[in-house]
Amino acid sequence: MSIQHFRVALIPFFAAFCLPVFAHPETLVKVKDAEDQLGARVGYIELDLNSGKILESFRPEERFPMMSTFKVLLCGAVLSRVDAGQEQLGRRIHYSQNDLVEYSPVTEKHLTDGMTVRELCSAAITMSDNTAANLLLTTIGGPKELTAFLHNMGDHVTRLDRWEPELNEAIPNDERDTTMPAAMATTLRKLLTGELLTLASRQQLIDWMEADKVAGPLLRSALPAGWFIADKSGAGERGSRGIIAALGPDGKPSRIVVIYTTGSQATMDERNRQIAEIGASLIKHW
Score class of each variant (00 low, 15 high):
254 S>H: 04
244 I>Y: 11
118 R>C: 14
25 P>G: 07
52 G>W: 04
141 G>V: 07
216 G>C: 10
190 K>E: 14
282 L>K: 13
278 I>N: 00
62 E>K: 02
211 A>M: 15
35 E>C: 14
90 G>K: 09
100 L>T: 11
177 D>Q: 01
126 T>H: 12
218 L>N: 02
100 L>K: 15
44 Y>N: 00
259 I>C: 02
119 E>Y: 13
76 G>A: 06
80 S>Q: 15
163 W>Y: 10
274 Q>L: 11
133 A>H: 01
143 P>V: 09
152 N>T: 11
230 A>I: 03
278 I>A: 14
44 Y>D: 00
215 A>W: 09
127 M>H: 11
56 E>C: 10
261 T>H: 10
281 S>L: 08
245 A>C: 11
87 E>G: 12
156 H>W: 14
219 L>S: 08
245 A>K: 00
142 G>F: 14
72 V>Q: 01
166 E>M: 15
122 S>F: 13
233 S>D: 00
124 A>N: 06
72 V>N: 01
133 A>K: 01
69 T>M: 14
101 V>T: 10
90 G>P: 13
252 K>C: 08
225 A>L: 04
60 P>T: 10
235 A>T: 13
208 W>H: 07
72 V>P: 06
179 T>Q: 00
268 M>Y: 12
283 I>P: 02
94 H>F: 03
67 M>R: 01
208 W>S: 09
180 M>K: 02
286 W>Y: 07
236 G>N: 03
149 F>I: 08
211 A>K: 15
128 S>Q: 00
90 G>E: 10
90 G>A: 14
214 V>C: 14
172 P>H: 05
271 R>Q: 09
170 A>G: 02
65 P>I: 13
140 I>Y: 06
39 G>C: 04
54 I>P: 09
191 L>M: 03
254 S>A: 07
94 H>Y: 04
194 G>C: 09
173 N>L: 11
56 E>K: 09
277 E>G: 08
176 R>Q: 05
124 A>S: 13
136 L>T: 09
216 G>A: 10
137 L>P: 00
41 R>W: 02
55 L>R: 08
247 L>A: 11
179 T>L: 01
37 Q>F: 12
116 T>V: 14
163 W>K: 06
153 M>R: 03
102 E>N: 04
178 T>V: 04
29 V>A: 08
136 L>W: 00
150 L>E: 14
91 R>G: 12
111 L>P: 08
210 E>I: 15
232 K>C: 01
154 G>C: 08
135 L>W: 05
142 G>E: 08
283 I>D: 02
28 L>P: 05
46 E>D: 15
222 A>D: 10
258 V>P: 00
217 P>G: 09
212 D>C: 15
247 L>H: 02
31 V>N: 04
126 T>V: 06
123 A>I: 15
255 R>W: 01
161 D>E: 04
68 S>P: 00
217 P>D: 15
76 G>P: 01
187 T>V: 12
62 E>V: 02
154 G>M: 15
32 K>S: 13
41 R>E: 02
132 A>S: 12
254 S>I: 05
257 V>S: 13
215 A>F: 15
112 T>N: 14
66 M>G: 12
278 I>K: 00
264 S>R: 10
168 N>M: 15
250 D>F: 03
71 K>V: 00
68 S>Y: 00
144 K>I: 13
96 S>R: 07
159 R>L: 08
137 L>Q: 07
267 T>D: 03
139 T>K: 05
94 H>R: 04
202 R>G: 09
179 T>D: 00
114 G>Y: 12
94 H>Q: 04
256 I>V: 14
77 A>R: 07
30 K>D: 07
248 G>N: 12
26 E>H: 13
181 P>K: 00
93 I>H: 15
147 T>C: 02
186 T>D: 15
44 Y>R: 01
240 S>A: 12
253 P>Q: 12
186 T>P: 11
283 I>G: 03
72 V>R: 00
138 T>I: 14
165 P>E: 07
247 L>F: 06
114 G>V: 04
37 Q>D: 07
245 A>T: 07
119 E>Q: 10
113 D>S: 07
243 I>H: 13
155 D>S: 07
246 A>M: 08
153 M>S: 02
260 Y>T: 07
79 L>W: 01
261 T>R: 09
184 M>K: 01
158 T>D: 01
226 G>E: 13
264 S>K: 09
216 G>K: 08
219 L>H: 06
24 H>W: 05
62 E>W: 02
153 M>V: 02
103 Y>R: 05
165 P>A: 09
63 R>T: 14
269 D>I: 02
95 Y>W: 15
252 K>N: 14
46 E>A: 15
257 V>W: 09
100 L>A: 12
146 L>H: 07
165 P>V: 05
240 S>K: 15
